[in-house]
Amino acid sequence: MTTQVSPKRSRLDPEPMPRRDWLGLGALWAMAVSFLFATVGMMRLPKAAVLPSPSKKFRVALPETLAAGEPFVPPGRSVALFRDEEGVYAISTVCTHLGCIVKPAADGFECPCHGSRFAPDGEVRKGPAPKPLAWLKVSVSGSLVTIDEGTTVPQGTKVA
């Protein structure tokens, strides 16, 4: 006896995948997807929307006696301010390597943590720092200088 291949399936034929299995699998997938979405949703919580750090902008008066090329570090800030004949400029003293505070030295800046050295204009001279020190936005009004630590400007930007 040969088997007839019938194009029409009877409802008595075994289903390719039993209905219960299909429903069960569907339920499992639904559970997996909802867990995934829940996890993604939960991951949003620890990503802070408001950063509770002190204001990036501050105002300071430069000392009258500040010589050209001599750094002035306002107390409690990680910025070095300079004044020369072209104007006032600010260089961040946060090392571009791993965030230590660099110290202004005779020939630029030096980092205590991993020995990076920077030229007076912030260029890397030595060590692991991947980028030059950032120049920060300054604006001058009378004797007061406003520095915005959150905004960087191209190297060499000096404000008269």
Partner: peptide
């Protein structure tokens, strides 16, 4: 926050990492 420890060293078992980080 304004004056880093000098030298700033991690616990000893991370100092191998810190040595590599200095490159």
């Amino acid at each position: 926050p304004n004056v880093p420890e000098n030298p700033a060293k991690a616990p000893w078992y991370f100092l191998g990492l810190q040595e590599m980080v200095s490159f």
